[in-house]
Design a protein around this nucleic acid. Structure first.
Lengths: 162, 162
DNA sequence: AACGGTATTGACAACGGTTTTCATTTCAAC
DNA sequence: GTTGAAATGAAAACCGTTGTCAATACCGTT
C-alpha cells in the first residue's frame, strides 16, 4: 500500500582503488563517468584518503578550501557520488540527514563502528550476522535481501574531552 | 576531526500504547507534549494503527486526505514526532532521505525486515546480534554504544507483480 | 450552557542538504 | 596549436522537514 523507496547501502567493489583513468582508449566512456584526471578530483580523493573518519561533502569542501585547494561544493558532491557508485567509498546516511563518506580499506562486505563525536570508524566483519539476516529473511519469504548495520558510540579518544 | 552528529535509533518504550491522555491533573504538562485528544491526533494514530507498513508523513497526509479526514501536513509531522519521542512508533530513515514511521507491536528492542516495495515490515529480535555488537564495541574501546540494523528485501506478496 | 485560558491546528515561509542547470574552463587526442 | 568533449562551479531549483503565528478547538470551570 504505502511504499518504501530505495533503502539499503551494501555493495562489494571490484576495482581495487585509486583514481582510475579507465582505458579511454577510444569510444566507450568510463564506468561511473569521470574519466579525466583533474586537480579537483585528485584533491577530493586525497582528502578522503587522508582520514579514516566518515566525512560529509560540506566538511570536505571546507577542509579543502582551508587547505588552499578550493573545490566547488557541487564538484565535491559529484566526485563523492562517482566514488560511491564505483564502490570506492562507503556511504552512511546519518539520522540528521547528512550523508557521510569514507574510503574503506576492505573491499569486501563489512560494517562500521562509528564514533558519534569525531566520525572515526573501524571496519568490522560479522559472518554470523550475514548468516543470521539471510536466515531471517528466508524464513519470512523475503528475497533480494540486503541489510544495513552500523554501530555508534564514543571512541576512546573522545572520552577524554567531554 | 570531522564530526558525525546524532545517529542511531534505538529506544525501548514504557507506555504500552494508544492515545494517552496523561494525568493532566494540574500543572505538569505531559511527557512528549500533546495532552488533549483531537480529531487530527486520533486520525494520525488510527492511520498508523491500520497498517503494519513503514509509512512516511507525506503518505499518511495523502491517505488521510483521501479518507476524507484531512489533516494538515504540519500537524501530521508534529504527531509523528511526538509519537516517536514517546517511543510509540519506530522511525526509519531511508536512503533517499524520507523518514518513515511504524507502530510496532513489540515494545522492547527489535529490528525490522522491511519490504522495499510496499513497506511491509516484520519485527525481528536477535539477541545474538545485540551481544555481538556490544562485544565488538567493547573490544575497540567504544562506549555509550547503540546500533542500527534493518534488513531490506522483497516480501512474498510483492514477488507476484514485477 | 456559556466562558476562558491554553493546547492544537494549518497555511505559509524558512531551512538545510543535495541536485540541476548551464555558461565557462580545462583536458587530452589529434 | 586546434578542437570537441568532459569537468567545473555559481546560482537556482528541489524536497523533505521544521518554524512561525494568527485562528481555532478542547475541556475544566462557572
Amino acid at each position: 500500500m504505502e511504499g518504501v523507496p530505495t533503502a539499503n547501502r551494501d555493495r562489494a567493489s571490484d576495482e581495487p582503488d585509486g583514481r582510475v583513468t579507465v582505458s579511454a582508449g577510444r569510444g566507450l566512456p568510463g564506468r561511473g563517468t569521470t574519466t579525466r584526471s583533474t586537480r579537483q578530483g585528485d584533491a577530493v580523493s586525497a582528502a578522503l584518503a587522508a582520514t579514516n573518519a566518515f566525512t560529509s561533502a560540506q566538511e570536505l569542501h571546507a577542509q579543502l578550501r582551508a587547505d588552499g585547494q578550493p573545490v566547488g561544493l557541487t564538484t565535491v558532491y559529484r566526485h563523492l557520488q562517482v566514488l560511491a557508485d564505483r564502490g570506492e567509498v562507503d556511504v552512511l546516511r546519518l539520522d540528521d540527514g547528512e550523508t557521510v563518506y569514507r574510503r574503506c580499506a576492505t573491499g569486501s562486505h563489512h560494517h562500521h563502528l562509528v564514533c558519534r563525536e569525531c566520525g572515526h570508524a573501524v571496519e568490522v566483519a560479522g559472518p554470523e550476522i550475514e548468516r543470521w539476516t539471510e536466515q531471517v529473511a528466508a524464513a519470512e519469504g523475503f528475497t533480494d535481501v540486503a541489510h544495513t548495520l552500523e554501530i555508534y558510540g564514543r571512541c576512546a579518544d573522545c572520552v577524554s574531552c567531554p
